[in-house]
Amino acid sequence: MRALLIGLALAFLTLFLFVPLAFVFYEGLKKGLGVYLAAIAQPDALDAIKLTGLTAAIAVPLNLVFGVAAAWSIAKFSFPGKSLLITLIDLPFSVSPVIAGLIYVLIFGLQGWFGPWLREHDIKIMFAVPGIVLATTFVTFPFVARELIPLMQAQGTEQEEAATVLGAGGWQTFWRITLPNMKWGLLYGVILCNARAMGEFGAVSVVSGHIRGSTVTLPLEVEILYNEYQFAAAFAVASLLALLALVTLALKFFVERHTHELQPPAGEDSA
């Protein structure tokens, strides 16, 4: 019975996880390391790497600051409407990535609310880098906040109150007490946020315009190469993203070992 169940579970995971993962690297390297490296060193691929890095470098800190502010107000104070606020923060997870792109088209696109005004002033948001950053910020919005809120709620306010009573200022309390207490949860949220920011496809695809060399992120570059039947190159670039996923899982594993006694309630960290 035991062997049968383990066998079945492993067969399922092999089919749906391990084989696809191995396949990405196999296809990328099939034509040799030279072809693989050449595909990654293509100017288009390098531009995509830069844009992906830039996007994450803006979206992740934005959501990091938000996550800390949201967790501070929600976990340390009580006020009416708190559970509604928590639900609203989770909202972007329930919205299709395609709709996440669509909403910014409706606002900043040519026919959108600000479209005519933006064109008059020669400001490009859609089919340009700001649109990509906005869409990415939307889809990665809840990651840091939803890690921090349950963690800081579980930790309570006693330590901060003690610090305040003993005469510490607000920032001093934050830097010396709150930040060290939440650092693993914060790191966990940032890791997940970054992985999604670098890997987002649907939302970015809608707002990007696919202009090679200027608005193509790594996942979009994979799509373009694949649709051009450059399979080896597509899988080579895809393998970079697969590596990112593996690094993310490794970091996640490492951080989880540090936070096992402060884990958020069940179901809270999945999504």
Binding site: L21, L192, G199, F201, V222, A234, F235, A242, L244, L249
Partner: peptide, 16 residues
């Protein structure tokens, strides 16, 4: 590794 689908960009999963 169970979390791989959370971490792997969807476009990569798609082509694989």
């Amino acid at each position: 590794l169970v979390d791989l689908p959370f971490a792997l960009p969807t476009a990569v999963a798609g082509i694989a």
